[in-house]
């Protein structure tokens, strides 16, 4: 995979992460974590939200981002890694500008989600965990996303799209540049 893509593209949040100096990022992360700490009785608990904050600032959670989180939360870096890799939705590698989260669990599966998977593969050359060469899309194959009545369904960044067919999915994706 082309490592420069996701990093340059930043997250769906649109922050041009690399434009920011490293010191700047860690200062802003520090401020965010300071706010988060007020929400919990123990600092350790800020870890999950802090990782999201870092992901937003750094674009994805590489070693530098994880080390910054470790430093600012006091959670040992090996444990931070243990936590971040347990969950499947943190961006532990650079991702495209838009992330497609396609549900393929049973309800969507029986309504044809695997056909959509093949469609994405054919049209964009995308398979699970990968990013298009132009950095426009990344694909994450999901377990149930709670839209089984309108299956098949997907999330693109933070937007839900339901009742997908091969006919309508292309038009939906065309809206994401």
């Amino acid at each position: 995979m082309d490592n420069t893509i996701g990093a340059a593209g930043g997250a769906a949040t649109g922050v041009a992460a690399t434009d920011m100096a490293a010191g700047d990022k860690s200062r802003r992360l520090k401020d965010k974590i300071k706010v988060l700490k007020k929400l919990y009785p123990h600092t350790r608990s800020v870890l999950l939200p802090a990782l999201y904050a870092a992901q937003e600032l750094y674009g994805w959670l590489g070693e530098d981002a994880l080390e910054a989180v470790s430093r600012l939360t006091g959670v040992p870096s090996a444990e931070v890694k243990g936590v971040v890799t347990f969950y499947s939705l943190y961006k532990t590698r650079p991702m495209g500008r838009n992330v497609i989260y396609l549900c393929t669990n049973v309800a969507c599966f029986i309504m044809g989600a695997n056909t959509l998977e093949e469609f994405l593969e054919k049209t964009y050359g995308l398979s699970h965990g990968e990013t298009t060469a132009d950095g426009r899309f990344s694909l994450v194959i999901m377990e149930c996303i709670g839209a089984c009545d309108k299956a098949p369904a997907m999330l693109v960044n933070d937007d839900c799209h339901f009742n997908l067919t091969i006919d309508n999915i292309k038009a939906i994706l065309d809206n994401y540049k």
């Binding site: 080390e67 470790s70 040992p76 243990g82 890799t85």
Partner: peptide
């Protein structure tokens, strides 16, 4: 020391340092 941790999940878990 907290130098190593279980990373990953399920069958993909294993023990490693940062």
């Amino acid at each position: 020391a907290y130098a190593i941790a279980v990373t990953g999940r399920g069958a993909h878990s294993f023990v490693e340092p940062f």
